[in-house]
Every structure is written in structure tokens, then in C-alpha cells.
């Protein structure tokens, strides 16, 4: 049964990092997706995965913007390591995701080394991965889509005339 969660950008990126396992290295850089503000550091999420044990290391975004949703096909349990000490959390509800995210982000902000392992079947999660992004700004839409295309996703976009928003979905089939 599919579960859909619509949450803020940073936790979604974090969870996407956990769910996706097809790339050996990802670099999602949001520095060009908004008008440049020299006072604000660029936001980068880098994910490195060891190919044999489906493990990802995550540096969470500190400057979340926008709205991203994540869909996955089951309710996976996540193992994560803080400075090589193992923790396990089950993620069944949106509240679980938020709690997990806050915990991990808290550790990351303290400069601790975080490693996350997804216990769900990587191929099944990958097949059902769906990321969404909503923005009124064409430049943002293009920047986000470009990243997704380079990661092997296809992107579907529609424009809501009422809200003047572009709704984008990246899927990997």
C-alpha cells in the first residue's frame, strides 16, 4: 500500500536520500534555484552510497525552502548510525518522519557523523520513488527539474492558473 507524505523540503530530501539507492554519489545543489542572495550560504545536500550494503551518508540541508512530497511503497524501518553507534526507527506516519528528521538533523547540526541504512528493499523503493516540487518561479522549476533529469528521473509539470503555481513531479520508473 502506498503512503504519501507532504512535508518540508529538507526532511523530504533527507528521506529521499534514504529511499533512493541507485546512484553511487549524488549532489543536489539548490544554490541556483532562487535569486542569488550573497548573505545566504548556498544549500547543498550530498549523499554518498556504498553500493553493496545500501547505505547512505547524509549532510542535511540547513536552509529548506519550498515544498516537496515523497511517496514510498512500504513503511520502512531505518537504521542510522551516530558516530558509529546504531539507532533504529520505524517510520509509519508523517509524525514518525518528522520526529526522525528532527533527531537526525539535531545530530548533524552538532557536527556528528550520521549514516543511514534503509532496511526496505532498495529496488522496490526505487521503483516507486516520487518527488514533488511546487513553485511559482520558472527558474526554480527549471533548476529543480534539471537536477532530477540528471539523476535519471523524468519530470512532469502542470501549471495551476488559479494559484499561479507550477506543480512538478519527478518519477523513476
Amino acid at each position: 500500500m502506498k503512503t504519501t507524505h507532504r512535508i518540508a523540503l529538507a526532511p523530504s530530501l533527507l528521506l529521499a536520500a534514504m529511499a533512493v539507492s541507485s546512484c553511487s554519489t549524488w549532489h543536489l545543489d539548490r544554490s541556483h534555484s532562487r535569486p542569488m542572495d550573497p548573505s545566504r550560504p548556498s544549500t547543498t545536500v550530498s549523499i554518498d552510497k556504498a553500493p553493496d550494503n545500501h547505505t547512505v551518508s547524509v549532510q542535511p540541508s540547513k536552509d529548506p525552502h519550498g515544498d516537496i512530497g515523497l511517496t514510498f511503497s512500504d513503511n520502512p524501518a531505518f537504521k542510522y548510525f551516530v558516530d558509529n553507534h546504531m539507532y533504529t526507527d520505524e517510520v509509519r506516519t508523517e509524525e514518525d518522519i518528522t520526529t526522525l528528521y528532527i533527531k537526525i538533523l539535531g545530530f548533524a547540526k552538532l557536527g556528528r557523523k550520521i549514516t543511514i541504512t534503509s532496511q526496505s528493499k532498495p529496488a522496490a523503493v526505487d521503483d516507486n520513488l516520487k518527488l514533488t516540487f511546487t513553485s511559482p518561479n520558472e527558474t526554480d522549476v527549471i533548476a529543480w527539474s534539471k537536477k532530477m533529469l540528471h539523476l535519471g528521473f523524468s519530470v512532469t509539470i502542470d501549471f495551476d492558473k488559479t494559484t499561479r503555481l507550477y506543480h512538478c513531479t519527478a518519477t523513476k520508473e
Binding site: S154, D158, K161
Partner: peptide
């Protein structure tokens, strides 16, 4: 790429849906 049900409905009402992929 496949379309979800919401986008199928949009097309039925004459709203275009753009898809892009490499």
C-alpha cells in the same frame, strides 16, 4: 513517463501537462 490520475483529469479538462526526460 506515466501520468498520475490527477494529471489525467487535468488533460480531460483541457489543461496541458508537460513531461520531460533525457
Amino acid at each position: 513517463p506515466q501520468l498520475d490520475a490527477r494529471r489525467d483529469s487535468l488533460l480531460a479538462t483541457g489543461t496541458d501537462v508537460l513531461q520531460t526526460w533525457i
